[in-house]
Amino acid sequence: MLSLTDVVILQDGFRLSADFSISTGQRVAVIGPSGAGKSTLVNAICGFVDVSAGTIALQSTDITKAMPSERDMAILFQDNNLFAHLSITQNVGLGIRPAMRLSVAENEVVANALSRVGLDGFGTRKPGALSGGQQSRAALARALVQSKPWMILDEPFAALGPALRAEMLDLVAEVATETGAGVLMVTHAPEDARRIADTVIFVADGVAHAPVATAELLDNPPPALKAYLG
């Protein structure tokens, strides 16, 4: 269970409040107009943005002040998901532990993860030699080896074409199923939410609303969401 209790985020005159919880293993999409605070919300959950009030808790542990790496979350950003100067294997290996040399067993885990996301034989390459879709796959492979209870995605596939994006979302769902992780994903595309999410958090007018079942929300949108969906 990931719960936000009376959370308030203040940033240069911008205010976002959130009070909801998501049960373990759920897949949740965060949608809303640009500038509404979708990214701010997940950044606060990941620990990149300080919350001004309220608590964030994972199971029953208060993680409001925890470091990002101590929050049991695997994170995929919009860009810069891979260190451009490290090989794909090294990038994925960082998900296991940041060591200069991995053990044979650990290397095998990395190789398996790469083959799982369809990147067999790409391990020695640098990210620059991969296409956008392949880079996303590599980042997912790392999430796979991290094997955290939560995967947080901040529009990581926004730059990909529709078909490729759908493919990546399916892969996210598969990875999540294998690791048993819950998914919290920011997106601006309602079809993404329909494809992967059980519930949707709608962010608008300074409030992150509690999650509502995806189909229910998107089929009968409240006025603010209707205005956004157009």
Binding site: M67, S69, E70, M73, I75, F77, L86, M100
Partner: peptide, 20 residues
Amino acid sequence: AYGRLSAGLGLGGIRLWAWV
């Protein structure tokens, strides 16, 4: 470019220097 990614992966201190 890599501050958030490093933080998310728990790369800090001497490891941050060595890796990034």
